[in-house]
């Protein structure tokens, strides 16, 4: 068969290994104490070099496996430094800064995301970061923070998200991304949003099976079932589109830009829908800071801001009506 959407044995192995690494170093329970994730464990796992060629120190995997890894990172709410680092590695490597790329990949130089904010930037999880990756519309820039001291500001939900402000003109732009980098950014951000959508669904389903009211699990009530089914639907659509987009991007297919743009358009909606619905299914505890679900909602809001989706209507559709009479091209075989 020339088309096969089953996970390969290699993919299953790398994802199993990632799951074990994440359970050990990034358990979701860690978020109950405010702290900024170190990328050291992810770097040691080879998470920043997964898709790099073997001569560049990579494991010989591709963008498809890297996207699947980022779905798992989404499940564990790993700091958006992971996406920033994965992209910063590429920017540095392509701009003839191999030493910098190596330091990022090794976790020696941490990269935080930066978003346009007033005349300057809002940094996410900037503590100890040497670099920032700025997501400005459809443009990516790598900024060396040097000795600049970002000013901490209270984050969403009284510190639920660690934010700080970088004054205008501070830091030094050292590399710019191209279209390919934007495509990769959209793919990895969407993959993480899928991880959040799946995890929110799973948390809600678990809760609906254990929480009892009126003498039975609340998941036996149709109203709750339908909430859960809707979350399942959003996750499944996004997951199928992620496979399609990742394969198209890896193989450099003509429809890669379209598939990734469609994915990036669906991802925020699915992640927000599922996290919002999951909070509702959790009831009172879902509104408390003691349950984990609010972290997923907040992380979704951060990820959604990492770049703007490409304008989908400007791209040629993957499946469009035939307009012209076909040009006859005889075939050798019938």
């Amino acid at each position: 068969m020339t088309c096969d959407l089953n996970r390969t044995d290699d993919q299953r192995q790398i994802l199993d290994a990632a799951t074990a690494m994440l359970a050990a170093h990034y358990p979701v329970a860690r978020l109950r104490e405010p702290r900024t994730d170190s990328m050291a464990a992810l770097a040691e796992f080879g998470g920043f070099l997964l898709a790099a060629s073997e001569e560049d120190g990579g494991a010989g995997f591709t963008l498809v496996e890297e996207a699947l890894l980022h779905v798992r990172l989404g499940h564990h709410l790993v700091s958006p430094r992971a996406v920033a680092g994965a992209l910063a590695c590429r920017l540095a490597a392509r701009q003839a800064e191999p030493a910098l790329a190596e330091r990022i990949a090794a976790g020696a130089a941490e990269v935080c995301p930066a978003l346009p904010h007033g005349d300057g930037h809002l940094l996410i999880d900037a503590e100890g970061a040497a670099l920032a990756l700025a997501f400005e519309g459809r443009r990516l820039s790598l900024i060396e923070l040097g000795g600049t001291a970002p000013e901490p500001v209270a984050g969403l939900g009284h510190g639920g998200i660690a934010t700080s402000r970088l004054a205008p003109g501070r830091g030094r732009r050292i590399a710019e991304g191209d279209d390919r980098a934007c495509l990769t950014a959209d793919l990895l951000v969407s993959a993480q949003l899928l991880g959040i959508a799946e995890a929110a669904r799973d948390l809600a389903v678990d809760y609906a099976q254990t929480r009892r009211q009126f003498g039975k699990p609340i998941g036996a009530f149709q109203a709750i079932k339908h909430h859960c089914a809707n979350m399942g639907l959003q996750a499944e659509m996004l997951s199928a589109q992620l496979d399609m987009a990742a394969i198209a991007a890896r193989d450099g297919r003509d429809d890669a830009a379209f598939q990734v743009a469609a994915l990036r358009r669906l991802a925020p909606r699915a992640a927000l829908f599922n996290t919002r619905t999951a909070i509702q299914v959790h009831g009172g505890i879902g509104f408390s800071a003691e349950a984990d679900i609010h972290h997923y909602l907040k992380q979704a809001h951060v990820l959604i801001r990492l770049g703007e989706p490409a304008p989908l209507l400007d791209l040629p559709a993957a499946l469009a009506p035939r307009t012209n009479r076909p040009r006859r091209t005889p075939c050798a075989s019938p």
């Binding site: 088309c3 659509m237 996004l238 589109q241 496979d243 399609m244 379209f258 994915l263 669906l266 989908l312």
Partner: peptide
């Protein structure tokens, strides 16, 4: 358009996934 693309991706998945 994005949803129709996802429906197509799901269609592929039902055919090419065990």
């Amino acid at each position: 358009r994005a949803e129709a693309a996802a429906l197509r991706a799901m269609t592929y998945r039902t055919v090419f996934r065990d």
